[in-house]
């Protein structure tokens, strides 16, 4: 757990529980992520990582407990809390008939930043690593990595204070993954709290301030990465997976 302070955590789950009929997807999760912190959530498929992200996004209602973003309950402030978050799934899906710039303009306007002009939006795409010539091309021609970059640009342009990532580097080549990680670190340095669900132990250690391991809907381990080596993290992870 991050240390308690008077500033509300960017992302907070309290006794969060989600069931589907008899199946328990999440067992009373408690989690708190501060501004500028990158928290990586590791776990096998079906461990509850994506469910956690979806609960933060308000896509599904919790069975018990609550989710807060900057101190506001997602259940009671569904639209307000979304003003502060950005979401990057495994595949950032955009409108294929619109250009990268048009997609960015559309989503940032929906998020209440319609005042950003094309030049400003272009700089966000540039900072996210998208080549200027690509910004004016239709997204239908983009690679997955290019779409992820538009997703990052959307988060930056929106001025999101929390970033929710669900397997964002899955399927990216090493170079793309590295670029993506650097972007996350840049955002973290700017004070954005980041929750990233991932299978990638190496990258979790590289960029995460803390790492949590989920199994069967429970957070079975939570540790800082500062004094942890890659091999330590891998060993701990595998130990939990083979329990």
């Amino acid at each position: 757990m991050a240390p308690r302070s008077s500033v509300p955590p960017v992302l907070e789950a309290i006794g969060l529980r989600k069931t589907y009929g008899d199946v328990v997807a999440l067992h009373g999760l408690d989690l708190s992520i501060a501004a500028g912190e990158i928290f990586c959530l590791l776990g096998a498929n079906g461990a509850g990582k994506t469910t956690t992200i979806q609960l933060f996004l308000g896509f599904i209602p919790p069975t018990a407990g609550c989710v807060r973003i900057l101190g506001q309950d997602v259940a009671t402030h569904a639209l307000q809390t979304k003003q502060h978050i950005a979401y990057i799934p495994e595949n950032v899906m955009l409108y294929p008939n619109l250009t990268g710039l048009e997609n960015l303009k559309f989503f940032t306007t929906l998020a209440g930043h319609g005042d950003l002009d094309r030049a400003t939006l272009g700089t966000y795409l540039d900072r996210a690593g998208l080549a200027p010539e690509a910004a004016g091309r239709r997204v239908g021609t983009y690679s997955k990595g290019m779409r992820q970059k538009v997703g990052i640009a959307m988060a930056m342009a929106k001025g999101a204070q929390a970033l929710l990532l669900d397997e964002p580097t899955s399927g990216l080549d090493p170079k793309g993954s590295n670029e993506f990680s650097r972007l996350l670190q840049t955002m973290s340095a700017a004070g954005v709290g980041i929750l990233m669900a991932t299978h990638d132990i190496f990258r979790s250690k590289e960029i995460g301030a803390r790492v949590g391991i989920m199994k069967h809907g429970q957070l079975v381990a939570c540790m800082g990465t500062e004094d942890l080596s890659h091999s330590d993290l891998e060993r701990i992870y595998l130990e939990h997976m083979h329990d």
Partner: peptide
């Protein structure tokens, strides 16, 4: 089907 609904929902539009 495209997945853009999630982006829309996450953007906070009613």
């Amino acid at each position: 089907e495209r997945g853009t609904l999630r982006q829309l929902a996450a953007s906070g539009v009613h």
